[in-house]
Amino acid sequence: MTINQLSIFLENKKGTMLQVFQLLKQANVQLIATTIADTVDYGILRILCDEPSRAYQVLKEGGIAVALSDVFAIELDNKVGRAADAISLFASEGISISYLYSFIIGGKGILIFRTDNADKAREIIILNNMKFVAESDLSALL
């Protein structure tokens, strides 16, 4: 019901981000989506890719501070307002979204997010017939 995302803790210094991407390139990992949250002191880079477990090993062995985290991935119709509709369902139940990003792949809108209450969020997704996306689904759309 959730998919694996790489979360990488980056020092705010020249070249640290490049190092991550080069390690993934050398290991022939295909990226699906990336996003970075930056602060004054450090950044958190989040990556969806085709083989998260292998990518995790590659980065870890390369000395990168990396974790595998579970995030929700749901598929939405590629139409105006669908993201607002989905998010309002969580908001009305008092669930906070810690972070969220979205992208379009193979004509489908994909919403990736993490909440402060995974059980409740899962329940809302199921009750409202939203469609979970599996890792294999994403790779198939590449």
Partner: peptide, 14 residues
């Protein structure tokens, strides 16, 4: 140094 990345949640790091 962080021991390991125990969370990817910025607010918890903060």
């Amino acid at each position: 140094e962080l021991n390991q990345l125990f969370t990817d949640d910025y607010s918890r790091l903060q």
